[in-house]
């Protein structure tokens, strides 16, 4: 059993819980500035953008197959298909590229 992994989970649990709990329990009348408001709202989009690129390119062993899978996912996501289909489509794209090329 890897205890350091469990410590990561506990750490993640703590830093996820604290921002949820503080305003409710301690700061019920807090007013954030509009700037801070927008900054907090944009964080997830910025983080996801950074997570996708360039990490995706090295996720499958070859840049070409990663791009093939990524493009399939982008196309499916563009038409707002279910998340599960977007993921399965990406995997299928990589798999097909590796089989055909």
């Amino acid at each position: 059993m890897d205890y350091s992994l469990l410590l990561v989970v506990l750490g993640m649990a703590l830093v996820t819980y604290i921002p949820r709990m503080l305003p409710l329990v301690l700061l019920r009348d807090i007013k954030l500035s509009p700037f801070l408001n927008r900054f907090l709202k944009y964080i997830p989009y910025a983080a996801i953008g950074a997570l996708i690129f360039p990490g995706m390119l090295t996720s499958t062993g070859s840049t070409a197959s990663a791009l093939a899978g990524g493009l399939v996912s982008i196309a499916l996501a563009f038409y707002r298909l279910n998340l599960m289909l977007v993921v399965l489509g990406g995997i299928a794209g990589v798999y097909a590229w590796n089989m055909l090329i």
């Binding site: 997570l51 996708i52 990524g70 996912s73 996501a77 998340l83 977007v86 794209g93």
Partner: peptide, 10 residues
């Protein structure tokens, strides 16, 4: 390996 990235894309 692509799955997480596909998830983020989705």
């Amino acid at each position: 390996g692509i799955a997480l990235y596909a998830m983020f894309i989705g």
